[in-house]
Computed example of a mutant assay.
Amino acid sequence: MEIKRRNFQGVLNILSFNRHFYVFGFIALTLIVASQYLLDWNMGLFWLVIFGFIYGLGMPLIVSAYVYDLSGFYHFDWLKKMNLEDSDEKFNLNINAGFDETSFILKNILPKSNLQVYDFYNAEQHTEPAIVRARKVSMFYPNTQEIDSDKIPLEESSVDNIFLLSAIHEIRDHEEKVAFLKECRRVCKPDGNVIMVEHLRDFPNFIAFTIGFTHFFSSATWQRAFREAGFLSINEAKFTPFMSVFDCR
């Protein structure tokens, strides 16, 4: 199935899934503007606050448009450079948190390989409003199965590649992350790959998302989680200043 993305679909998704943030932000901005008629604002401070709100509301959309709509992320050239083998004998997993924009693309890139999709979303544990809304509009790949984050229902050393694409940060608890990655290591073949793409809690993402960058985890946190899960090789490469691709074995 060929998936054609709409123009600026990425930034439109950000607006839709995080609309509560933008509604409250615009209400607060309106109240601040109105307050200049009631309060004796220092004008320098007033415009600084206005700029801060406009920056906080607008910059995440600008960066999201760059990363998801203009950088070619969904063309997956970054994955094609890894030269993964594609054959009838290969078995790949794509694991998400209930919002799936990548499975059909992966199947198009690796058409001969078998692809199984798992969804680890748990309504009690993964409570972010954005992911709850995203699930309502997600496309579901055929035979997508719901799983617990600490149990992948496959035999040991049975998978060639596991894709974790902008989803695993929804596992907020460190111990749960480690348990999940241990399962990935268990089912992955000795020469297999776990390929993860994530924003990081770093300076570029602070510039992009201000306080929202705390929704992500640092490179050191991910490296520690992979090591605790038993991975020996952890390679990180940047895809734009705002996203990292981890290839772990």
Rank of each mutant, 00 (worst) to 15 (best):
R201E: 12
L93M: 06
G44E: 14
V187E: 05
Q9K: 10
F242S: 11
D88H: 08
T240N: 07
S87F: 04
D119K: 07
Y118P: 05
I27E: 07
F163R: 02
A123F: 11
Q9A: 11
N108F: 08
I54H: 03
Q223P: 09
P153Q: 14
K136M: 10
A97F: 00
A237W: 14
G230S: 03
I105D: 12
P142T: 11
R224W: 06
D77L: 01
G10E: 01
E176K: 15
P129A: 05
L106A: 02
L29C: 00
L165T: 02
K189G: 01
L57K: 00
L15Q: 07
L110G: 04
I109L: 11
H75L: 07
T210D: 03
I95R: 02
A237Q: 15
L39V: 13
M139C: 10
Y121S: 08
A34R: 14
L154Q: 00
T30M: 01
N143C: 04
I131C: 06
L110N: 08
E228R: 04
H215M: 10
A208D: 05
N193E: 14
A208V: 01
N83R: 10
F213Q: 15
N13P: 04
E155L: 12
A167W: 02
V11Y: 02
I109F: 08
F91D: 03
S158P: 01
E89I: 05
F99T: 06
I234T: 10
F213Y: 15
V132N: 11
H169N: 02
F51W: 12
L181E: 10
A225W: 15
R19Q: 14
Y118K: 06
S16P: 04
R6F: 06
F206Y: 15
F213D: 14
A123R: 14
A65G: 11
K90I: 09
M82L: 13
L154M: 11
Y121H: 10
C248W: 12
F246H: 11
I14A: 04
C184T: 05
A65W: 10
I168D: 10
T210K: 07
K81W: 00
I62G: 01
I211D: 09
F217E: 04
D148T: 13
M59C: 06
